[in-house]
């Protein structure tokens, strides 16, 4: 049918040649862990709706070494997502002007990371307080 065979450059390993794109692929890859973790939580929620026995079997399943290993990897991935999310934020949000000067990028990044640290500690304290 079509006799033209235009040259299409291969995309094999394009991102491995440049550290910037390696980092990009890793931070995009964190989405796989966000999705998988949401799936674990969704399964738990569904089991909760099925009653006590179902919920307890889900809790027991989380003690499986494979789940522990998954959650260790997910913890690393989500922490990295937190870091890159705020690292990129100066470029993903509209410029913030304070007193006629544009707020430097590192202030936005540092502010975001501080907010994340505070949110995480707040969540732990809240769970701790509710569980006691």
């Amino acid at each position: 049918m079509n006799k033209r065979r235009p040259y299409v450059r291969s995309m094999d390993g394009w991102w491995r040649k440049n550290p910037f794109f390696v980092e990009y692929m890793i931070h995009e890859g964190t989405a796989l862990f966000v999705a998988a973790y949401a799936g674990v939580l969704l399964a738990g929620l569904y089991r909760l709706s099925q009653g006590e026995a179902a919920w307890n079997s889900w809790l027991d399943a989380l003690k499986n070494p494979w789940y522990i290993a998954f959650h260790l990897a997910a913890l690393a991935a989500l922490s990295y997502h937190t870091y890159t999310w705020f690292k990129i934020m100066p470029r993903t949000m509209p410029p913030v002007v304070v007193g006629g000067e544009r707020l430097p990028g590192w202030v936005i990044t540092a502010g975001g990371l501080a907010a994340a640290a505070a949110s995480c500690l707040g969540l732990l304290a809240l769970v701790w307080g509710m569980a006691r």
């Binding site: 973790y37 989500l78 922490s79 997502h81 937190t82 999310w85 975001g112 994340a116 969540l123 732990l124």
Partner: peptide, 10 residues
């Protein structure tokens, strides 16, 4: 997920 994700997973 950036704000709460790591602690939720933990």
């Amino acid at each position: 997920s950036a704000l709460l994700g790591p602690m939720l997973v933990f």
